[in-house]
Simulated scan of single mutants.
Amino acid sequence: MPTIEPIYDKKYECLFCKKPFLSKKVRSRFIKISEFDTDFFPLYESEESNPLYYHIQVCPYCGFSFSDDFSKAFPPGAETAIKTAVVSRWIPHDFSGKRTIHQTIQTYKLASYCGTLKKEKHIILAGIYIRIGWLYRTLKIQDQEQRFMRLAVKEYNDSLYTGDYIGTQVSEVKLLYLIGELSRRLNDRQNAVQYFSKVIEKQRQSVEPKIIEMARERWREMRE
């Protein structure tokens, strides 16, 4: 009986050039989380079956990089900007095999650039930046972790202001908590307290008591 590997080839179609290509994906049965950090960073039992490594797809033909969260629509001017800044400069790279953490970071940076040119939702860009921060945390490169956490905070704030998180898996309470927790990690105490307070104020209407309790815990830790 053949052994089932944790990672398999999945067929994708590039959102930009429409060409098909293969990229790795982790089978869900092999994904096991040992714990979560306070900013929802999932710590997986096995690095080999870490789905963070394969969250981004990179088209080998044109270089456009995206996740399943990207919308299929391109706003006016976006396609021209991507052709000029990405496609015309693309030196073919193959990210279809198993990825190292450094290759993974490269794919996220490509996706953040493409997402910015495409004018993706702030909540999507924030999700890319926070994941880059997590990967740098794994590598214990604190200055780069903090750099991308700052970018994530900005995008989360913009998402809160524009409301583009509505209809996604990120609720308002989770968004407020993330801004508070990332601010705490960036030593922005005032902003952290402000957003944790907003989370706690929503305890009566929230259906996410775990996040309310997490905000209380962070608040207590800061006071101590």
Rank of each mutant, 00 (worst) to 15 (best):
T3C: 12
I4H: 09
P6Y: 05
P6N: 14
P6S: 10
Y8G: 10
Y8M: 14
D9A: 08
K10P: 10
K19W: 09
L22P: 02
S23D: 05
K24N: 15
S34G: 10
F36Y: 04
F41K: 14
P42C: 01
E47F: 03
E47L: 11
E48D: 12
N50E: 04
L52N: 08
L52C: 03
L52Q: 12
H55S: 07
S65M: 00
P75A: 08
P76T: 01
G77C: 07
G77H: 01
T80I: 08
A81Y: 04
V86C: 07
W90R: 07
D94E: 02
K98H: 01
T104G: 08
T104Q: 05
K109S: 05
A111S: 05
G115W: 03
T116P: 02
K119R: 04
E120K: 01
L125P: 06
A126K: 03
A126S: 10
I132L: 04
G133R: 00
G133E: 01
L135S: 07
L135K: 01
Y136V: 11
R137Y: 12
I141M: 11
D143P: 11
E145S: 03
R147V: 13
F148Q: 04
F148N: 02
V153E: 00
Y156F: 06
G163P: 11
I166S: 13
Q169A: 11
Q169E: 12
S171C: 09
S171F: 04
L182T: 00
S183F: 04
R185A: 10
R185G: 13
F196G: 07
K198A: 15
P209M: 13
K210R: 15
K210S: 10
E213P: 08
A215T: 05
R216N: 10
E217F: 15
R218G: 15
R220S: 10
R220Y: 06
M222E: 14
R223C: 13
